[in-house]
Simulated scan of single mutants.
Amino acid sequence: MHTPLTEPPAEAGAESLEHRRAAITRLGHELRALVDATVRTAASPDTLDRVADGVRQVTGQLTGRRRARTEIPEVDRFPGGPRMYSPVVGAGSPLAPPVRITPTDDGVIGHCTLGIAHEGPPGYGHGGMSAMLLDELMGHACTVAGTPGMTVSLQLRYHRPIPLETPLRLLGRVTGTDNRKVHVTGTITTQEDPATHLVTADGVFIAPDPERVRALFPGLQPET
């Protein structure tokens, strides 16, 4: 019988947050390995039942207060900072590839590798994953350009299927603004062949007014 772990006393300060982020990152890595093994395995039903029991016991160890739907995790910096549980960039998410995004001279570049858990057609990424990757990357491009916004339109063109277990290269760039609207383009290629577009996108993002921001994100602390 497993005894649930108890939460340690809350610590304050940047050092404790970094310690927590490191632990979240480690757990996220192991969860992604578990997900990958789960979607690949040809284990017997008995083995699967035994593993399910073990996973249930592990889940029971994650005790303590659970954050509310609108609550921003203390390990996140929103907007514009790390999002530890994002299904795209979150190091702590079992769903994320995760994408590593860095600014460039005219936008942002992202790198990731999709696994079997992201499969659509056998051997290739699900088309919805492409949309999610580009939506995230293009949003980052808006933020880097100093015009953060939310997606109002995203049009994708699928040129070729995205191979799984292949390093990918994603680009996002702001091409223009119109009052609160921000126009952005995005592409997905492989790292090996960046000249061949697999998916391209055109998007429109809009910067919500402060009142709308407060309504959408009640957990966001006001600037001081």
Score class of each variant (00 low, 15 high):
L170F: 09
E192L: 13
L168C: 06
V174S: 05
S130T: 12
D209A: 08
P208H: 00
G176H: 01
R160F: 03
H183D: 00
H159C: 05
T143P: 04
L170G: 01
H197S: 14
D135Y: 01
P148G: 07
T147V: 15
T151R: 03
R212S: 14
G125H: 12
G146E: 11
G149L: 03
L198Y: 08
G125N: 11
T147E: 04
T185C: 11
G172N: 07
T166R: 10
P163N: 09
T189S: 12
D135I: 02
G176I: 06
V204P: 05
K181Y: 06
N179V: 10
Q191T: 15
T196K: 08
R180H: 11
T187G: 08
V199H: 04
L137G: 06
V182S: 06
Q191Y: 01
V204A: 01
F205L: 08
S130P: 10
E165K: 13
V144A: 12
T200Y: 00
N179C: 10
T177I: 11
R212C: 11
T147K: 12
G128E: 12
M129R: 13
T200S: 15
R157K: 10
L171Q: 15
A207R: 14
L134A: 04
F205K: 02
D193Y: 11
V199F: 02
P163A: 00
T190V: 12
V184W: 02
E192T: 14
L171M: 13
P194K: 12
M129K: 09
T166G: 06
V152P: 01
V152K: 14
L154A: 05
L171E: 13
Q155F: 05
P167I: 13
P210G: 01
A145T: 10
L133S: 11
M150G: 10
A207D: 06
V204Q: 06
P194V: 13
